[in-house]
Structures are given as C-alpha cells and as structure tokens.
Nucleic acid binder design. Structure first.
Ligand SMILES: [Zn+2]
Ligand SMILES: [Zn+2]
Lengths: 570, 570
DNA sequence: TAATGGGTGCACT
DNA sequence: AAGTGCACCCATT
C-alpha cells in the first residue's frame, strides 16, 4: 500500500554491526547439571553464543542461507556468532517500525530471534529471557506472537493466568484417554495428621489445578511498569509429553485464521508449509533457518538445514526490491556430531525425556529428568521423517537463485549421517522431585533417522501417549494401530476433489509469493506418499473427508493482492 | 404498577388442595447409615413427610404461623403435613404466573418451599430435589434464586460449571490464610512406579480442581429437554467448613444490589433483617418460618421459631389485602431431643462435622463423617446467639396482628432448654474415604446454647478455620483473637453517621413495608450490644468505615413506591 | 502499572 | 460429566 518507513528500516537492520551480535541473546556456559537458572537475554552480554542464523541472508538479497550458517558455526564454543543479524537492531528500532504500522513483519522477525534464544537453551530449568520482542500494546497481542514461535515446535500454548500486568502460558492440556484419566487422578494419601512431618515441610508446593497437565513448561509475560514494556521469559523449556504439531487443532485453526485476518501472509505461508510437511510426514524444517552455530559446551546436536520460509524478511515490503534468497547451509557439524556420538548412552533407563519438537527434531532434543513423583510417563517422541525428499516446489518463496537441487543434496546428505546420541543422567531418584530438573541432557536424533540407519532405537514408544503419535507413519513400530490408521493413513488418503493441478512455479518471489503459496497449498494436497515415492495425485481421484486437508478458503478473500499491510497496531 | 393477572392467581394458589401436600416433597424414611441416596422430589409420592411449614397461614390471612406449625408436627412421622400450601399448586400454575410477569414473589415463595425441602433432608449424601421451582427462562436466573435460599444459611454459592443445560453450584472457596495455604497444598507422593497398585485402583477419583475447597456440597441444575424445564437437586447437603453469613462479601453485595435492581423488595427486606441479626449476633431466624414438622425416624433436632419475614406472601400483590400474620410455633420436640441425648456421644473423636448454618442453627445440625484422607479439618461451627432479645421492631413486616411479645416468649423459652446432643459414628477409618458419608447423624444444638447451659462442649473450635469464625463473638473460647476483634467487635462498632433515628413502626404491612424496612435498616445500624444490653446509639456518636454498614443508597432510587413489579421474565 | 506468585469463578469444550 | 482456558482476583515482598 503505502511506502512504509519500515522499508528502509528493513534494509538497514541487516546492516548490523557484528558487535551487536554478542549482546542479542546470551546463553550461559553452564552446561552441567546445574540447579541455577541461566537466563538468556538480549541485555546480557556475557558469553554470547547466539547465532543469528543468517537472517542477514534474507535481507541482503542474494546471500544464501548456507553462507550464514557456515559462518555461524565457524565461531566455536561460546564465541559470538558471526551470522547475527537484526535482533538487537530490531529491538532498538521497533518503535519506529510500529509507528510505521508494519509490525507484523517485525514481530515475525523477532520470533526468529526468540526461537534461537530458546534453541540455545539446553537446561530446561533455566529462564530464557526473550528480550527483543515486540512492544506489545495489549496483552492480547502476546499470545499470537508466541503461537508463531511455539506452534512450529509442536507446542500449543494456552493461557494459564492473565491479568493486566501478567500473562502466563502453558502447554495446552492433552486430550486424555480413559487410561490417562485414571493415571492422572491423584491418589490422596491418608492425611496422617502430622505424620507427614519432615518431608512434607520440605516438599515444594505442587500445582494442583490439574493432575492431567503436569508439563512444567511455562512462558511468562510480565509488564514492567518501570520500563513500560512487556517482558517474556520461558520458564521451563522442557515438557513432560511428546511434542507434536497438530494442524487439526481448533486453536491452531483459529490462530491461522487470525493470521489471515491480520494479513500476515508471511506467517500464513510458513504455517502452510509446516502443515504440509507434517501432513506428509516430511521433516519439519528447522526454524528459523539453522545456521547452526551450535558449538556449545555440552552435546551439540545436528542440524538439518532445509530451505524454509523466512518470515524475517518483510515480504510485503515492496520497496525491498531485492529478491530474498535462500540456500540451506550445506554441511557442518560432522565433528560435533561425532563428538556427541562418542558419549555413552543408555536411553532405556531414562526417567523422563524432554520431547523433541517437530522443528527441533532436526536440531536437538533434550533429555530431562522428571520427578518420579510425577504421575505422567515421560516418553521420547519419535519424529517421523521419511526419506522422501521434499521437492523444491514446496518452497516457492525461497530464493529464486537457489539451485533447485540444493535442497535434496543437503537433505539427503544428512540422512546418511549417524547423528544420534544419548546421554542419561543418573537414575537415582531425586529426593525432592519438585525441584527443577538439573543438568538436563541433550541428544540429537530422531527415531526415523535411526531407522534409516538400521539402528534399533530403545523401545521408547511403548509407553508413549497414544494421542501424540498420530502423525507418525510407520516409523515407530510400537505405535498403536488405531492411531496409525485413523490419523496417519487416512490423512495420506486425503485429497481434495476441488484442487486443480497448478503448474508449479519455482522460485517465487516474496512480493508475490502469498497467492502462489496458496496455490501450492492446494497442489500439495494432491501429493501423497505411495510406496515410498512421492506422487502427485489427480484431484478427481480421491474423496477427502478431512477439512483440514482442503485448501484454505480464506486465502482468496483475505489476500490483499499481496500488498503490504500497514494498518496493524494502529 | 399495573394490576397484574397474578393477583388473582396469587389468591388462587393458596386455595390448595390438601391432597397435593403429600406430593410436593418427600423424604425417604431411610435414616440409618445408608449408602443409598434418598431423593426428595415433588413427584415422589411415597412416604411424604414434607410439611409445608404454614405457608397457608400467610395467604390465608389471619392465620398465624404457630397454628400451621403445630398442625404440621401433629402429623407424626411420615404423615403428610397439614399446613402445606402452595408449592405444588404454584408449580402447576407458575407458568401462568410468569406470563403475568410477577415472578419475583412467586420465586420467593418457591424459595421457602425449597428451604423446607432442604431442611427436611438429614442425610447429606442424599439428593434433594427441589421440584416446585421457578420456570427459569435463562440459566442466569438460577443463581440469584439459589442465593436467596443459601445466603441465609450461611452458604455462599458459586458456579462450578455451567453450560446451556446444566449449572453446578458449590460453596465459594474460603479465603485462605497462610497456614491454610500450606495445609491445602497436596504433597505428591512418590509415583512408586506401579507400586501403588491395589489401593490406587480402588481409590475413587478425587476432585483435583482445588485442594482448598473440599466441600462436597453441590447444587445441580439441569435442563430437561423433555420437560423443557430446569430441575434443581441439592447433591450433598453437607459442608466441610463452618457456615457463616457474611454481609461484607462482595458477592453478597452484588446479589443484594441485584435484588434492588429487580425491585425484589421482599427479598431486600428479608436480607436486611438477616444482616442486622448477623451484625448484632442476634439469632438468625429460621427460614422459612419453621412449622417444624420434623418427626422423622432419626434424631429430631429442635427448632427455634422466630417471627420472620415470609417472602412467600406476595407483598407486592395489592390484591392480597389480608395482612400476613406470623406466630412462631411454641414448643415441641422435647421428647425427640431427649431421645437424641440418650445416645452415646463421643464428639471429641468426630472425624468431621457438618456445620450448621446460621439459619439452621436453631433447627438442627448434622454430623457428617468425612474421609480421613481429606486434607481439610472438619470442625463444628459455633453459632453466636447472644441472649439479647431481638426487639419486635426488627420484624416490621411480620403480622400486624401478632402479639408483640410472642417472639420473646418463645424465643427465650428455647434458650433455657437443653437441646444439645451428640451422636458419633464409629471412628474407624473408612476404607474408601471418597464414598458418600453414610448414616450421617444429627444433633440439634449450637455451641452457644451449650455455653449458656454451662455445658462444656468438646474442643472442636481449636482446629476451626480462622476465617469462618468472624462473627462469633465470645461464644467460642477457642476462636482466634484476631478474628474476634477484626470482624466481630469492629462490626459491632460500626455506626453510620448519617442514620437518623426513625421512629419504629411496628407491624408494618407488607404492601408498604419496603421503604420502612429500609428505614429500619438505618435504624438498626444505630443499635449496638454494649455490656450485654442492646442500645440504640445516636448516629452522631460514631465513625463508621465499613460501607456495608451504611444504609442502602439504592433503596430510594430503586423503590418503586412499593408497587408491584410485573415486568420480570418478560 | 512495584514485582511476583498463586487461587478460583465459570463458561467453553 | 468433567476438564480446562482464561481472567479477575488476592497475597507476599
Ligand atoms: Zn509441554
Ligand atoms: Zn460448603
């Protein structure tokens, strides 16, 4: 629409000073089983190991992601990453951006930053401060922004408590089955009068609101009266349940509809892609593009770098004439991976596991020990990542200059590499189960990768919660059949009868990608994995009963001809 | 305002057929420690022991309550009461009444009926169906109606859960102190893997929403699609906490303001009286006027009959020209009381006690056994009933023909009678604490009465919840001092500086009682108990800081010159 | 609008 | 039928 002042800002932001990189997000080098909390904040300037994951590549036009990723990893250990981009600059200038009205893109950019902050955090009981965050004018703006962050991680957040100065988010309670219900019910022990004496006094208070939702993960947003600004802290970056992105969630549908209403087509496209990757059990892309500067003290997991949509770039900004280019970083981490694998791993005795998110599955998963008092079983999520390569048409908004084969080369390359490792904490029971689980371990691997390598994983699917294996398709042998059939296979059969075959447009430019993305969305519905091969099925040859598989009916009506939207937060 | 069609209906309703009496509410004769639930419904015609507590006296004009009460008790055991009035008739004709628009009075009448139903029920684990209830057109109409019933009983209800076809009410959670908070917190026992085996399987599900509010009392309102009518059932007429009417409650203020907004001056006046009785620690009147037909198989408690406002009579109905008369039933139940007292009682070992309500304290209290697994302490509420007689001016709307001294004579008479008894269930721990507490015992007494009789009660106040003894003034020696002073004594000192002395108008007629009632409300604020004597204090000699003690500012503006209101439920 | 933590009413699902 | 999302509270420091 109008020529936003953010246009110049967007370009300006990428011209970052490397000195800013070290102040964006910092991760404490404490990697051992620490009881303390390490905060990762933009204002903390000590020992920054944050990598800005090649956001600069986007704004810089032709620069590919690969370059940024490599540069980031070049900085080893706690050194400041070199690929850092716009986080701090964005925080400093987001006021201008919001005045300009183009906050959607800025917020998306900050999401990328926040994601990296979270990813850098290896200890679940540490506080992760997300400092460069949008300057929320209303508390209701916080949840959608956080949803952009956590939905791709397989985390559906809900508000636990809120008021004018605080919003606490937690994981949405999982739908319980009959068995889960019984397990969840607390067994009230006999009051014992004062007999519970010493130990009870030391017991920390237990959250009693729900015995079913015991996940300690919290995101706390508080409004600072002094600074007149909202602050967001991830309180416990660990989960007592598998993480799974569920595009069928009602909340997700609402969320995505809101994105359309807000004309946040960047996010719409990104989640479109996420949906189809999930639908086809394709590996969910790391988010944001993993420059993977993950050289840290502890185990470094592997990254699978795939071309992905980068919401950082303001695609609605027509003044940015340079096309956004993407190239997934080729390879890296071999040394790190090998180092990781050298560790001993006895996963079968894991008390509890922090479940890897769909987007993080390519990066790392974190082992978290949970209190044995916890009634929930802690299982390892099995990520379903078939070897079917994602065609380049799935990333139409990624880099017109990118070689079409780049994805596959890098992607398949990763599949051939053993990158699994396990590390287990001591199995003795913590005397105080409620305390923060110290020294969480990490492991970088996914079940499917191990399957591909004929590496038999420990039987961790057995006690998995049935509801959470829905999208896993034949990768975990121990998944319950009903879920495999009800969700997995039927989804693979979903074909929308009204989805015409649209010629694939490769290398779609950002400024016009959104409608095309929608078209591709429809097209993707016609693609199915059959006998290990990706097929494009004619739309007339199927009968779909799942409305989630249909193309988004709102796209046509909501699409503003892909012009920048500047009327937000006004 | 207008001459409502209900006017004729109101008169008509009182012309009830006695045959209907037996079908209104029924109490099962099962009195032993039964595990089954006895429902008290209007449709149940077996063994009705319901007494309509002299509602007929009101509509019949000059008939005094005493007569009705005696008549009711004359019918022993399960015989149908003779004083029954309008309940069933009202239920049958309330549709017409609502069409007429004068539902406020009808609803008040039904409240009286419901109160009797509840009072008849001695077993807490029985279902009490309140069948003649208003034909609620909206679920939001239910709570105010129930509040009219339960506020006078010292029960503040809140909605636990609601939807279009169901509303579940429970006791409002008590404000927790520091100690209560720690006690309430559940101590999660170690999961013990599968070690919790057998016992856990037998454990019933525990309500986990709040460890602080463990009261089992519930009122369930369900909408019957077949009958297109709401039904209300009192699920568990027992409480794990003391009952106390708190006029300072915010919810109560809202409730009372709503009464004014609805021009329900009958209820306003009734609660005005309740407030002042509570404020001066005067005995709260039984509600409704207790004909006390309580001849039941188990222990029969005593009733203290006081003149009370009877919302049953449609005071706004100007066509009912006959003045309502009341006379509390004189005495009764001595034999029953003695029989009760003959039972062995070891109250010091009581596991839990159903706390008597302010209005029920004169009637009966019920012993209820609670699971030892329950974390809450169950204590006996001590009703504060000083011997100070309530002046007849406190009941201006009660029976102009009633002898002014009738109240005092009967009232004081009751005070001199020992009416306390204890009965205790076996003290062994129930293997299944969650099961309904069978065979609840009853005892008819209040702590203050025992104090007056120099009868030392068992030390049940020691573990009393501090928050709930606020209005008890020196009757329970074990009450915490801070509450005695913070709430009890300061309340007694509350005097409104703007309350002029208004000459008392005795025997106020219903049709004009409301403004006078308000005046008396102000007047009552000037009365205090000093050195055991009731004094009227000049309004200029005090400084009040409690807004609740002020006269109701809405009375003047909301008072419709005391004409009938017919525009409800339209 | 100090900051931080938690209980709970109640309607939605 | 009941879990739970969410906001209106309150408590402590
Ligand atoms: Zn979680
Ligand atoms: Zn209760």
């Amino acid at each position: 629409m109008e020529n936003s002042p953010l246009d110049a800002l967007s370009s300006e932001m990428w011209l970052h000073s490397p000195s800013l990189d070290s102040v964006i997000v910092k991760t404490s080098p404490v990697s051992t089983a620490g009881t303390g909390t390490t905060t990762t904040t933009a204002t903390d300037t000590t020992g920054s190991s944050f990598d800005a994951y090649c956001q600069g590549a986007v704004a810089h036009g032709g620069q590919l992601h690969e370059g940024g990723g490599d540069a980031g990893r070049a900085g080893s250990g706690s050194g400041s990453g070199s690929g850092v981009v716009a986080a701090a600059a964005a925080a400093a200038q987001q006021h201008r951006a919001q005045l300009a009205g183009d906050t959607a893109s800025l917020n998306n950019m900050l999401i990328e930053n926040a994601l990296e902050s979270i990813r850098r955090q290896r200890s679940q009981n540490k506080l992760i401060h997300l400092d460069p965050i949008p300057d929320f004018q209303d508390r209701n703006q916080i949840k959608p922004w956080l949803q952009k962050i956590f939905y791709p991680q397989g985390i559906e957040i809900v508000i636990e408590r809120s008021d004018n100065i605080k919003v606490v988010f937690k994981c949405k309670a999982s739908k319980r089955g009959k068995q889960a219900r019984k397990q969840g019910m607390q067994l009230k022990e006999e009051p014992d009068s004062p007999s519970l004496g010493k130990r009870s006094s030391q017991q920390k208070k237990k959250r009693s609101v729900s015995p079913y939702n015991t996940c300690p993960f919290r995101v706390r947003a508080t409004y600072s009266l002094k600074r007149k600004k909202w602050n967001i802290v991830v309180v416990n970056n660990g989960h007592s349940h598998p993480l799974k992105f569920n595009a069928d969630s009602e909340d997700y549908k609402k969320f995505k509809n809101k994105l359309r209403e807000d004309n946040d087509w960047e996010a719409v496209r990104k989640f479109d892609e996420l949906e189809y990757r999930t639908r086809f059990n394709l590996p969910t892309e790391p988010e944001p593009i993993p420059c993977d500067c993950g050289l840290t003290q502890e185990i470094e997991s592997f990254n699978i770098v795939l071309p992905s949509s980068n919401t950082l770039a303001n695609s609605t900004d027509k003044t940015v004439t340079k096309p956004r280019h993407r190239l997934e970083s080729s390879r890296k981490n071999k040394s790190i991976t090998n180092k990781v694998l050298s560790r001993s791993s006895t996963p079968q005795e894991l008390q509890s596991v922090s479940h890897s998110s769909p987007t993080q599955s390519m990066h790392q998963t974190i082992v978290q020990r949970y209190s044995p008092a916890s009634p929930t079983t802690h299982v390892q999520t099995v990520q379903s990542v078939p070897q079917h390569e994602i065609p380049s048409t799935f990333q139409p908004w990624v880099t017109s200059t990118m070689p079409p084969h780049a994805d596959e080369v890098d992607f398949t390359d990763l599949f051939l590499k053993p990158m699994t490792h396990f590390k287990r904490e001591s199995s003795n029971l913590a005397p105080h189960p409620d305390e923060t689980h110290v020294a969480p371990d990490q492991w970088g691997s996914t079940q499917d990768f191990m399957d591909n390598l004929n590496f038999v994983p420990p039987p961790m699917c057995e006690i998995n919660q049935a509801d959470d294996c829905a999208n896993v398709q034949g990768q975990c042998q121990r998944l319950e059949h009903n879920h495999l059939h009800e969700v997995g296979i039927p989804q693979a059969q979903q074909l929308h009868p009204h989805s015409p075959m649209v010629p694939t447009r490769l290398h779609q430019q950002d400024s016009t990608a959104s409608p095309i993305g929608t078209m591709l969305t429809s097209e993707l519905n016609n693609m199915r994995i059959i006998d290990g091969q990706l097929h494009v099925i004619n739309s007339s040859s199927n009968a779909s009963s799942n409305p989630n598989a249909t193309p988004h009916p709102f796209d046509a009506s909501y699409s503003p001809h892909w012009e920048p939207q500047n009327d937000f937060f006004q």
